[in-house]
């Protein structure tokens, strides 16, 4: 068992409350050190890493068509049964989705749909602000998925942002220097 500061200094330590003073010194150090809180959503926003599984997006090819071939694998593997795919055939004879809906209210963001997809179509992106006051808007359609933000280029950064209470996105990134990857180095650890 670790000895307290009071015990380490013997009876002198006990009389002058060495352990209490050590505690006070520690908290004083913390009081004077920088805070680690992100000022989200008012001033800062954290951009997640590449591996982050957020709001889905749909990849498109060079012709602007969606990559999805409406095979339905994602819908089958989805543990929450929240993907609806209805296929149709284009004039070029390619199978494409007529309806591609994801019910984000049921999705658990496991990423299995991304793993199952053979056509590099459905992916989980960086967007994590999906709160809304209308539940119906949580069912996203094909065009929403095409427009949704992709995976973050340099994830793990804290970026300047501004709160915008209206619209789907709540805290909007602003241009400006990032406070960097090392926000956690501000955490003060007693030596």
């Amino acid at each position: 068992m670790a000895r307290t500061a009071g015990e380490r200094h013997g009876w002198i330590g006990r009389i002058f409350f060495a352990d209490l003073l050590a505690g006070l010194r520690l908290t004083l150090g913390y009081m004077m050190s920088k805070t680690v809180t992100h000022h989200y959503p008012d001033n800062e926003k954290w951009v997640p890493y590449q591996r982050h599984r957020g709001h889905h997006f749909m990849n498109t090819n060079d012709q602007g068509e969606v990559n999805c071939v409406a095979c339905g694998l994602c819908s089958v593997i989805c543990p929450c049964d929240c993907i609806t795919v209805i296929p149709f055939e284009t004039e070029q004879g390619v199978r494409r989705p007529k309806v591609f809906d994801i019910d984000l209210a049921r999705c658990l963001y496991c990423g299995l749909c991304e793993d199952a997809c053979p056509a590099d179509a459905i992916k989980l992106g960086q967007e994590y602000e999906v709160s809304t006051t209308n539940r119906a808007t949580l069912t996203v359609h094909l065009e929403d998925l095409i427009a949704a933000p992709r995976k973050a280029e340099n994830g793990g950064l804290v970026r300047p942002a501004k709160l915008e209470p209206t619209g789907g996105q709540h805290s909007v990134l602003q241009s400006g220097p990032s406070s960097g990857l090392d926000w956690w180095s501000r955490i003060r650890r007693p030596r």
Binding site: Y30, S33, T35
Partner: peptide, 14 residues
């Protein structure tokens, strides 16, 4: 504020 800064938080800010 003092409680917050001892715990490395900024405390009430908004």
């Amino acid at each position: 504020k003092i409680a917050a800064h001892i715990q490395q938080r900024p405390g009430p800010m908004r």
